[in-house]
Design a protein around this nucleic acid. Structure first.
Lengths: 239, 239
DNA sequence: CGTATTATTGATTTGTCTCAAAAAGTGTGG
DNA sequence: CCACACTTTTTGAGACAAATCAATAATACG
């Protein structure tokens, strides 16, 4: 059985009563998956709430002809599938681990019960949901007005939490084809666009390692058409 | 002063007590704008909650170089700017009327007070927010995998609420350049893509009037790459 | 070590944007 | 009702970005 501490480490459950924690503790399950495990598709029943302890997952949609769009990549301390508290309707996405991953799952019914008896949680979920919306709107805008290399640049800025502006070393967190798909382009395009960006903004490439001479150069190039200064407010997941 | 009925016609406020309705009634204002009025930008203070009685507005983001992305087009009975209950931070969008429009505004502080004392409202907002997210994800997917004419086709399916499948007459609700921008393309591309779609799916064009021989033809063409059958679940605004 | 996976490169095609100009549609005042 | 200006839409030619298909190179892995 999971510890109470593990449950209350989930941000939205941080202020629960001992009784509520005990309840969730009883219905919680922990899962260990290796890389590449398809552990969730939306038609499965009963519905569950997912929380990532360690690792990373991609949420993606697949069309009949096999093409796949990655909706989101989530890692440590993120939750998903919370929207099932309102509907059991199929929403067509699946989830696959990108690296070895530890998850907590909670039956959605139990989560719903807790949410309904504690309005603070609804407010926290609402706040998070607004942030996700904000981010989706931004991605939308970028798909419309930015080129492939600018989207990559924006992504680099997001994962680059260095205080320094100069001579920053960075490692791409996942395989390039995953990042390509996340950014709405083909792997070939990603390869070429990253090369183009690296030349334009003085980035040295070495496999999945990047050496950025000056972050400001990327900002300048990426944000030419932005409606918003970087960093944007309210990015809920890093990527 | 607005009637209590007007306030309670706002879906999220339908179950308020008389006292709460009176409170909102006192702080509510009604506004009349003609077409093309820029009545909201996110830097304005104090923040307000907006509800559309009649008419239509576009929410859009504008970048430094003047290019504009339409985030959403909202009409009768839709609300927006509700996310300001959590932050006074600037979120960079503006709102302009597309036709003569009647709005109710409520100071966001008052709305926040009501939400915090009535958890049912938070849950309704949450449910709506999930739907908006779902829709944004879908738009994202379409920008990535669909061509311009397919996106137009999808849009036609959405605004076409006819029971009949054959010989449906349809009027485009707004100017073509607005629809183009909403669908993430230039006006010229819209013009050409609509023509292409019309030939492929047997649609007769006459200004902003369309005669669709058979809706199924559009579905077939549009949903080739869809991860989801049409109509999608949970579209909160028509467009 | 060889095999499978992932990434890059090249040549070509497709889709969309850009800029310019013409056409169609809308509204106004004489 | 027409002439005029103004806006919106369409059309054309050309440039550019990204997808596609195919082949090669690099890397990871048992």
């Amino acid at each position: 059985m999971l510890s109470k501490q593990a449950i209350s480490s989930i941000a939205i459950f941080k202020d629960l009563t001992t009784k509520q924690l005990t309840y969730l503790q009883k219905i919680a399950k922990i899962h260990h998956y290796k890389k590449g495990a398809l552990f969730f598709n939306s038609s499965q029943f009963p519905k569950k709430f997912f929380y990532i302890l360690t690792g990373a997952v991609k949420l993606f949609r697949e069309s009949l002809d096999g093409s796949e769009v990655i909706i989101s990549i989530l890692d440590n301390r993120h939750y998903f599938a919370e929207s099932f508290i309102f509907s059991t309707a199929e929403t067509p996405y699946q989830a696959k681990t990108l690296v070895p991953t530890q998850l907590i799952t909670l039956p959605i019914k139990g989560v719903k019960k807790i949410i309904y008896e504690n309005s603070q949680i609804a407010l926290m979920l609402l706040k998070d949901s607004f942030k996700v919306r904000q981010q989706l709107i931004q991605e939308n805008e970028h798909l419309i007005i930015q080129t492939a290399d600018q989207r990559i640049g924006y992504f680099l800025l997001k994962i680059c939490n260095s205080k320094n502006k100069k001579n920053v070393q960075l490692r791409l967190p996942y395989e390039k084809n995953i990042l390509a798909s996340r950014l709405g382009m083909k792997a070939e395009t990603f390869s070429r666009a990253l090369l183009k960006l690296s030349k334009r903004c003085h980035i040295q490439l070495k496999g999945n390692l990047l050496f950025i001479s000056n972050i400001e150069e990327i900002k300048l190039y990426v944000c030419q058409k932005c409606s918003q200064r970087f960093p944007s407010v309210g990015a809920i997941s890093k990527i």
